[in-house]
Design a protein around this nucleic acid. Structure first.
Ligand SMILES: [Zn+2]
Ligand SMILES: [Zn+2]
Ligand SMILES: [Zn+2]
Ligand SMILES: [Zn+2]
Lengths: 131, 131
DNA sequence: TATTATAATGATAATCATTACAACATAAAG
DNA sequence: CTTTATGTTGTAATGATTATCATTATAATA
């Protein structure tokens, strides 16, 4: 593991901490530039990749194929996602017990985080003709 | 809902049934052409979208942003995904109880399916220098 | 400090799954 | 047989991500 933390990685982490939520790479780049940082887009992608490998941040790939990044935290959230309009509703429940995590670790896998998403139709999309 | 099922949708469903697994749109297109069907790639995407809205098939977005499609079935699988090499290991456990599903339905959401994925480092990638 | 090796960076081009588009085909309706 | 709506096709456009490569910063060594 790279003991040393690169300057760009520090900037990315700093912004993610301040943000307390998820953000995509492009927006992260814009926000850092607005802060006066001079790093390039490619470096942002590289930094995100390194932090992900360290187990410091997590990545969620949206249905559009776009990646969103956030700090890994204990009080994460899962969602109800509508396959119609694409909107998602946050859940404040996590049914994943420590016992299950340990079972996974037993398979020689070091678990950093998990994602759980439900898919279906929201109320609005249920009562609507398809386009 | 489109009561009527289009010819291309029938072909897609037929292949998915025979396949008993997940496949991406491009490969699905190739396989259908090999079967002698003459449909176009755009039609495959359109058909997949319609079937998804009906709640007949499910979509999984891979870490590379690629979508994989499969029939929605009771005996689905979840995975351990390595953030290092990208490989994934199937789990034959699903901790999602009917009780939780019903709680979601209570939010006026019609649930079709769910995805649960664990992320971390596989045994090989744990004992390896980062590139 | 000077020199060399190694890693990080930034601009830009390439990649590739997906979507938009416009022309054409099919079929239902009147 | 028209008219109208819907389905289909090939191709071009899109857009996030990755690869490339020359340049710069940092670390290691003498
Ligand atoms: Zn919706
Ligand atoms: Zn959870
Ligand atoms: Zn691995
Ligand atoms: Zn499950």
């Amino acid at each position: 593991m790279s003991v040393r933390r690169t300057n760009s990685q520090k900037q990315i982490l700093s912004l993610l901490k301040q943000l307390q939520g998820e953000i995509n790479a492009q927006d992260l780049y814009v926000k850092l530039r607005e802060r006066g940082e001079t790093l390039g887009l490619a470096t942002v992608y590289r930094g995100l990749k390194a932090l992900k490998l360290e187990g410091t941040i997590q990545e969620r790939v949206s249905p559009t194929g776009e990646s969103f990044y956030s700090l890994i935290s204990k009080d994460h959230q899962h969602h109800l996602n509508c396959v119609g309009c694409g909107r998602s509703l946050s859940l404040d429940i996590c049914p994943i017990e420590q016992q299950l995590i340990e079972l996974c670790q037993a398979k020689n896998f070091q678990i950093f985080y998990h994602t759980l998403e439900f898919f279906g139709l929201c109320h609005a999309c249920q009562n609507q003709q398809p386009n």
